[in-house]
Amino acid sequence: MKKNKYLLLISSLGVLALLVAAAVSENFLKEWHAIQGQARTQEGPIDVRLRQIVNPDLKKADRCVTCHVGMAPGEQILSDSKVAQPHKNVVHDTATMGCTTCHGGQGQATEKDDAHGNVHFWTEPMLPAKYAYASCGTCHTPLNVPNLETLSTARKTFERLDCYSCHRLDGRGGTLRPGGETGMEGPDLSHVGLKGYNQNWYTAHAQKNVEAQGGPWRRFQGGQ
C-alpha cells in the first residue's frame, strides 16, 4: 500500500506542478502580454487581452492586432515600440478590412512565427511589405487596380509572355498534364515570392531542371 501511496503522491504533485506551469505560461508569459503591458494611451495603460479584427464578409478573424495593438480598432497607442505603431493611412479602413487580406500570413494565430506564417503547414506566409500591393489583385480581378503601376505591369507581362498557358496564378490559367497524369503542367505560381523574392531564383530553377532527369524543362532548354 505504501508503494501505491507514493505513486499517488508523486503523480499528483507532478500533475499539480505542470498544471500551474501551464496556467502561468498561458496567462502571463505570452509575447503579446509583454507588448500590451508596455503599451500606453493618453489615459494610461490598456487592458491586456486578446484583440482581433473580425470581417464577416471576408470570413476573417485577424488577431494580428493583439501584438500590433496600435492598429486595433479604436486604440490610440502612444509608444516608441515598432510593433505597437498605428497603420499608415491607406485606401481601405484597416480596422474593418483586417490584415491578412493584403499582407498574407496566418491571421488566427497569436504567436509571432505562426502569425507571420513562417511555420510548417501554413501555405501563405506574409508578403514582404513592399509586395503587399500584389494582394490588391485577389479582389480586384479582372479590373485593374487604379494607381498601381507595378502590379498592372507585372500582370500584363504575365499575360503577354503566355505564362498562363502552363502556370496557374490565383486560380487562373494552367494546363492539366495529358494522358491521365495527375497535376498541372507547370507549377502553381500563386504563392511564389511569398517568402521573399530572389533575383536568381529563375536561373537557379532552370539550372536545377536541366540537371534533373526528364521533365518538360529539359525539352524547353534544348536538350542536354
Binding site: K2, K5, Y6, L8, L9, S12, L13, V15, L16, L19, V20, A23
Partner: peptide, 17 residues
Amino acid sequence: FLGLAALASMAAAFFVS
C-alpha cells in the same frame, strides 16, 4: 501522513484542473 499528503495533493491537482 503519507496517505493524507497523497490524497491532499490529488485534491489540489483536481482543484487546479
